[in-house]
Simulated assay, not measured.
Amino acid sequence: MDRAELVELLSPEGLRLLDGLPAWDSKADIVKTVALLRREGHPSGLVATVLSQSKLRAKARAKFGEFASRMLFTEAGLEQATRLRVAALHAGRFSRAGITHVADLGCGIGGDALAMAAIDLEVTAAEADEVTAAIAAYNLTPFSRVQVLHARAEDVPLGGIGGAWLDPARRTTTGGTTRRISDAADYSPSLDFAFGLAERMPVGVKLGPGTDRDVIPADAEAQWVSIDGEVVELGVWLGQLARPGIRRAALVIRGDAAHELTAAADSEDAPTGPIGDYLYEPDGSVIRARLIGDLARANGAWMASAGIAYLTADAPFESPFAQGFRVLERLPADERQLRQALQARRVGTLEIKKRGTDVDPAALRTRLKLRGDESATIVLTRELGRHVALLVERL
């Protein structure tokens, strides 16, 4: 969206048209909808803009729930925006630290600022992109204690502000296409600036979960967060926002429940051994936080092979930090023999899980020529360095 499109969207006609549209339906005849709106006299550019916003609002419900129906978005801004539930956790951390005024530097469309304002924190939000800053201002209009600036993070006066939150831009949009920035050195604002602020005030920084761990300051708390099995962010907390004695944390959110595994440092891997009657796949946040060893020792488990994130045990255990499988049978690791074994069991639907083996599950599934009315799950991995294929069932 460019500046002219935003001005048109923010006009009374534009907002009435957007709010009056029916809920976005991906199966609807978009050409018919455009024609109808054009016959009603709406300019073609405005029609395209409001339909794009309607689509983004529908997509945003996964992150913002009902709030999405009254917000505006950019494609890149929505992609990077924090889920409202996680943003509430960020806001709560500032509040518990006694910080009442937060600088949200690089606020994007305003998701984190919204959560902060909702618990009555004062927020100075800044966004370098003019269109995105205007959208953030619109989204944050209901909150009187929020000021939105069109400014670079580096240029925001911080006098009287108690702490800073930064979500450096990790995506860029060119020619209507949004792409992820792979090199942390190209983030905006830079990580040097973000972490350097910690010399002046408590700081929290949101990064992608796959960020190179070498960039994490030694005195920071690094918390990886997963929601319903997907690792969504790495939060780096400095100063009084970092919890004493915690340098690594894995926060697992599933439904309404949240569980956390914490440690003072990366945990030492558990010993390796033969695969037992049960196999466990740690949550991605536990893997990213390198707390697999602690998880294993807490549950009497061991690693199936060095460097591979599967745990195994002879007795079942329940943990919010791992998905468990009962090992039913060992199958041949050789592809031809594996195909014969699955055909003999009349497996027509197959879930393939793998770690430590260079296999494309989709391509392998095609080559296996599955036929039958049975469904199954197999795990392709290594046991003490050797390739194995396991027939398993989820616990």
Rank of each mutant, 00 (worst) to 15 (best):
residue 275 I to C: 05
residue 178 T to H: 13
residue 234 L to E: 03
residue 295 L to F: 15
residue 360 D to M: 14
residue 118 A to V: 13
residue 218 A to K: 10
residue 372 G to C: 07
residue 215 V to E: 01
residue 382 R to S: 13
residue 17 L to D: 00
residue 279 L to F: 03
residue 8 E to D: 11
residue 362 A to Q: 13
residue 229 G to P: 07
residue 27 K to Q: 06
residue 309 A to Y: 15
residue 141 T to D: 07
residue 156 V to I: 06
residue 269 D to C: 08
residue 307 G to E: 12
residue 45 G to S: 07
residue 159 G to S: 15
residue 73 F to I: 04
residue 345 R to Y: 03
residue 362 A to S: 09
residue 31 V to D: 11
residue 14 G to P: 03
residue 238 L to H: 14
residue 277 D to S: 14
residue 233 E to K: 06
residue 101 H to F: 11
residue 305 S to D: 04
residue 243 R to L: 10
residue 285 S to N: 14
residue 234 L to I: 13
residue 290 R to V: 11
residue 98 G to L: 02
residue 162 G to L: 11
residue 85 R to Y: 03
residue 134 A to T: 00
residue 210 G to T: 10
residue 92 G to K: 13
residue 38 R to L: 15
residue 169 A to G: 14
residue 82 T to L: 12
residue 72 L to I: 12
residue 127 E to F: 12
residue 130 E to R: 07
residue 288 R to S: 02
residue 105 L to H: 05
residue 69 S to W: 05
residue 163 G to C: 15
residue 219 D to V: 04
residue 58 A to K: 03
residue 100 T to E: 10
residue 175 G to T: 06
residue 49 T to Q: 01
residue 308 I to R: 09
residue 139 N to Q: 11
residue 314 D to R: 08
residue 358 D to Y: 10
residue 272 T to M: 05
residue 358 D to W: 13
residue 176 G to Y: 13
residue 233 E to V: 06
residue 267 S to N: 03
residue 61 R to K: 12
residue 351 E to S: 11
residue 147 Q to S: 06
residue 109 I to D: 00
residue 141 T to L: 08
residue 4 A to V: 15
residue 368 L to F: 09
residue 110 G to K: 00
residue 282 P to H: 07
residue 233 E to S: 10
residue 119 I to M: 05
residue 34 V to K: 05
residue 133 A to M: 12
residue 130 E to N: 04
residue 160 G to F: 14
residue 10 L to D: 00
residue 371 R to W: 14
residue 301 A to K: 01
residue 78 L to M: 13
residue 180 R to P: 05
residue 251 L to N: 00
residue 357 T to R: 07
residue 371 R to S: 08
residue 229 G to S: 09
residue 37 L to Q: 07
residue 37 L to W: 06
residue 127 E to K: 12
residue 115 A to H: 00
residue 338 L to Q: 13
residue 53 Q to Y: 01
residue 25 D to G: 00
residue 262 T to N: 01
residue 15 L to E: 06
residue 177 T to I: 11
residue 199 E to D: 12
residue 238 L to A: 08
residue 322 A to H: 00
residue 209 P to N: 06
residue 288 R to G: 01
residue 141 T to Y: 12
residue 60 A to R: 01
residue 246 I to V: 08
residue 213 R to C: 15
residue 96 R to C: 07
residue 103 A to M: 10
residue 175 G to N: 11
residue 361 P to W: 03
residue 32 K to Q: 14
residue 327 V to F: 12
residue 21 L to S: 01
residue 62 A to P: 00
